[in-house]
């Protein structure tokens, strides 16, 4: 695996990922989401979302603030279970298995489906222990040093930290911390990595290095990324889902909904829905 990630100071908004987008019949479905409605304390945050997410592709979820992007992505590894008032309806089939089905342990779900958060959240431990913690907890202790090095290398952080693995992770810069969180997530070898606005707290150079990472790593992983940055979606994603707020219902409440989901190129050049077009051309949101 090529590891030297070059940072291009001026990235054009190109649509290169489409070159790798396989035709629909050759895409492997990882998530088959059917009629997903998610509520906090009875109030729906997203309503009736149905879409498929494909293997070894980067799928972006874009849309204005408050349209339920984060709620949606946190459903995919049952992270919302931690919120007491949260309820989900509908089905999320992961390789055909309903994630909310009986006997499904959320711990086992998160073991396969990792997550990187908006704000870098390294543990207050050394750089080494940040990556090793999950490996130790999950019993992947054989060749621990090698696994840590491999994960840090994959996250393009190894060269920057190899001499100071014992240093506290909190002393790293924000961009390094976020790459450490990615290393931590991929060290335990998940199938899917969910990224919830992973670059929103980072400067453009750090953002760029994380986008390059996703290009590199999607051969091994399936990525789902929430972003409010359309250029980012255009740069990294093969498929893009546009979420927006539904018109006010009878009770005057609005909830998030999936407006359009298609190849990124299509979403950004010839969207089928007027609302998508308004959003991606900057007329709304």
């Amino acid at each position: 695996m090529a590891t030297a990630v070059t940072i291009q100071p001026e990235r054009r908004v190109d649509l290169t990922p489409q070159a790798t987008l396989p035709p629909p019949e050759r895409r492997e479905t990882v998530f088959d989401i059917r009629g997903l409605t998610a509520r906090y304390g009875g109030v729906p945050a997203i309503s009736d979302v149905s879409m498929e997410i494909y293997e070894n592709l980067v799928t972006a979820v874009i849309g204005p603030s408050g349209c339920g992007k984060s709620t949606f992505i946190r459903c995919l590894n049952r992270m919302n279970d931690l919120v007491p008032a949260f309820r989900a309806e509908g089905e999320i089939l992961y390789h055909g298995l309903d994630l909310h089905g009986p006997g499904i342990d959320p711990v086992a779900v998160r073991r396969r489906i990792g997550m990187v958060f908006q704000k870098p959240n390294p543990f207050p431990k050394s750089i080494y222990d940040n990556v090793a913690f999950g490996l130790r907890a999950l019993g992947m202790k054989d060749g621990l040093d090698g696994r840590v090095e491999h994960a840090l290398t994959q996250a393009a952080l190894w060269d920057e930290v190899k001499g100071r693995l014992k240093m506290s992770a909190l002393e790293l810069s924000g961009g390094q911390q976020q790459r450490l969180c990615i290393a931590r997530a991929i060290a335990v070898e998940p199938d899917v990595v969910l990224l919830d606005e992973p670059a929103s707290a980072l400067d453009p150079i750090a953002t760029s290095s994380i986008e390059d990472l996703m290009h590199e790593l999607k051969r091994d992983y399936t990525f789902v990324i929430v972003t409010h940055n359309m250029q980012q979606a255009a740069r990294v994603a093969d498929m893009t889902a546009f979420f927006s707020l539904s018109p006010a219902g009878e009770d005057g409440r609005r909830s998030g909904m999936l407006v359009e989901y298609d190849a990124t190129q299509k979403i950004f050049t010839t969207p089928a829905d007027r609302r998508t077009e308004d959003y991606v051309t900057g007329r709304f949101g």
């Binding site: 992270m79 931690l82 711990v107 998160r110 396969r112 990792g114 997550m115 958060f117 913690f133 907890a137």
Partner: peptide
């Protein structure tokens, strides 16, 4: 959350 997202109990 960072730990739970790794599939740690």
């Amino acid at each position: 959350e960072g730990s739970l997202a790794l599939g740690v109990s």
